[in-house]
Amino acid sequence: MSQADLSTSFRAEFDANSQEFCLAGVIRPRSIEEIAPGVSMLKEAIDEVRGVLYINVRRLVQMNNTAFHAFVRVVLDACRTRSDLRFVVVTSSVVGWTTRMFGHLNRIEPQITVEVYDSTFYPGQSFVENTSFIPILRTQTKMTWRHERTILPRHGMRAGIAMADICCGIGDFAVLVQKEFQPARIVALDHSKASLAYARDVAAGFGITDIEYTYGDASEMLLDDNQFDFVSCRHSLQIFNRSDMLLAELYRICKPGGRVYITNEKNSHCLGEPRSQSIQWTYNEVAKLFSHFEMDVELGPKSRRYLADAGFDDIVVESFMVTNLDGDPQDFADVITAWEKVYAGEMAVKRGDSPEFIQRFRQGFKDHIFAALHPKGYAGWPIWVASGRKPL
């Protein structure tokens, strides 16, 4: 990989293995001469590649017209001299102006394609960034917080720290942390605009105004390196099909000596009694269903390996069981009802499952609800908690 640091705020890189040229940061030159090394790198990349050159601008925060025309001119000239070469410009909805600025290129030059990376950037996105997930998330946090509030200090949570809650969802975890532990700063980032709007309403309802809710792509965050003492990412590695990318970003924004805290599930270990066989069958099928959409709701016990592979040390792992005895059993039943709606009503239908399968699938959820509400019943949902330290 070759790299040019054109200023403290702008970076150009070329990776020959992936045939990808990347622009990142702020690029606002007064003249083309100021960005000559980056323009030269793009020309060299074009000379070297065969087939497709990817131009990645997902982390390009700002770009003026001088820079835009300088880089685009190189690409358009290449289209006229290299009929064998195609260009794919990869933008992001997080930095929406890049799509608008580069979007017209494919209309004037058929060899150029513009793709919005995060419009469908993981297979399960349409399910988990749907507003139908909001009631699931709020009730789930209500139930898990009873456990996490005592667990968090063992994983580095304390007053006065700088914290980032990545994939924050509807923001209720950040609110609870702010009230309980009083970090000096909380940045809460998510890719769902609907969830963030809900999060801001939740914070306003609690009278909390100092949480920085931010729209962003967790795999390509526009956050500086080494700035947070504590980085949380709850129930998210299991739904993103490139967990290594996500962990690399969590590692990058964490300060040396700081900790990254993750929670994940093992859905096949959900249990209930009575009607345990039906319940067990359904949750085994839940794991298979998520796997079909490249999500891994069995990830919980794998957390230690994932953190170690990402470069963390001093890894701490523990688990807890959310049950119908933790509070109001109806809360547990409400979570299962919401799961049934999304898993059986949307995901199984999208996979193309038969009506007979879906009927049996639904029955397992109903039996889990029956166990949760039964006066002598027991229902459980296991969560794995893990954290790792970024080495000093």
Rank of each mutant, 00 (worst) to 15 (best):
I161N: 02
A45M: 01
R362T: 11
D367M: 08
G257K: 05
C233W: 03
A174I: 03
T91S: 14
P355F: 02
L76M: 11
C233H: 04
F357G: 01
L42N: 09
W339L: 04
L250T: 07
D84G: 01
E20L: 08
F127D: 05
A248G: 14
S276Y: 02
A70P: 05
R28P: 00
F133N: 09
R242Q: 15
A203H: 10
T131I: 12
L222W: 07
I253F: 03
P29V: 04
Q19Y: 05
V114W: 00
L271Y: 08
F181K: 08
Y215N: 14
P301Q: 07
L189F: 07
D328V: 10
T113P: 00
Q140D: 12
V39Y: 00
V385K: 11
Q125L: 06
T282R: 02
E34W: 01
E34C: 05
P391I: 14
W97T: 07
I186N: 08
R200I: 13
A287Y: 04
P183W: 03
R154G: 12
C79W: 00
L247P: 02
F21S: 04
S195W: 00
N17K: 14
F230R: 02
Q111H: 09
E273Q: 09
G156H: 08
E148L: 15
I358H: 13
V177T: 13
T120D: 13
L246H: 03
F230M: 05
T141C: 10
M1I: 05
F14G: 13
P301E: 02
S319W: 09
V297Q: 01
Q178C: 03
F320P: 08
A16M: 10
D5A: 11
R351L: 11
S276T: 10
P183I: 05
F290S: 05
F312N: 07
R158M: 07
R107F: 00
A386C: 14
I279C: 02
F332A: 12
D328W: 04
S276P: 06
A386W: 10
Q363F: 09
S92I: 00
L289S: 11
R389K: 09
R360F: 06
P329T: 14
H235Y: 13
Y215K: 13
S354I: 05
L271R: 13
M321T: 11
D210P: 07
